[in-house]
């Protein structure tokens, strides 16, 4: 059982690390959420006793309730942080029309390059083009929305 849990944690942690190294911010966030889950699983695995659900009174051997309380707290915290980061990425998308880190870097380089007008126009045109493409993609992908 311990081996199985360790391998699961390792796989989740590895996938999370892989995703976090991507350029697409949505993947980075998915990686962050996975990472939190790997940590939660690790806390559960760190419990001192295994048994039935820890509801008292019980005549069975119950599992360690402290790790479950810790995991619940950690889940809530990572939920809150994930919400925050997602809204932040939404702000980035709103400002740059992109969630690709490399693209964001190039936009930033232009912006800090003492307002180089011609280049700024090029970027603006590229932005518009991408905007239009995304519009088409969204329209093609989605039939209905709530």
């Amino acid at each position: 059982m311990t081996l199985f849990i360790s391998i699961t944690i390792a796989v989740i942690f590895g996938s999370a690390a892989y995703l976090m190294l991507k350029r697409d911010l949505i993947r980075v966030i998915t990686g962050m959420i996975l990472l939190g889950n790997a940590a939660n699983l690790f806390i559960m695995a760190a419990g001192l006793r295994r048994g039935r659900a820890p509801v008292v009174p019980s005549e069975f051997e119950t599992s360690d309730s402290l790790v479950q309380a810790m995991t619940l707290t950690a889940i809530v915290i990572s939920f809150g942080v994930a919400t925050l980061v997602l809204s932040l990425v939404y702000r980035v998308y709103d400002a740059h029309h992109s969630v690709d880190l490399r693209r964001l870097g190039s936009v930033e380089a232009v912006q800090s390059g003492l307002d180089d007008q011609p280049t700024a126009h090029v970027i603006q045109a590229a932005d518009d083009a991408q905007d239009a493409r995304q519009d088409r993609e969204i329209a093609a992908r989605q039939g209905g929305r709530w």
């Binding site: 962050m32 942080v81 932040l88 980035v92 400002a95 912006q111």
Partner: peptide, 16 residues
Amino acid sequence: PRQLRAALIFIVVNLL
């Protein structure tokens, strides 16, 4: 926009 991007880097690294 620059601060937003810096904040993202900050969050990802510190969350780790």
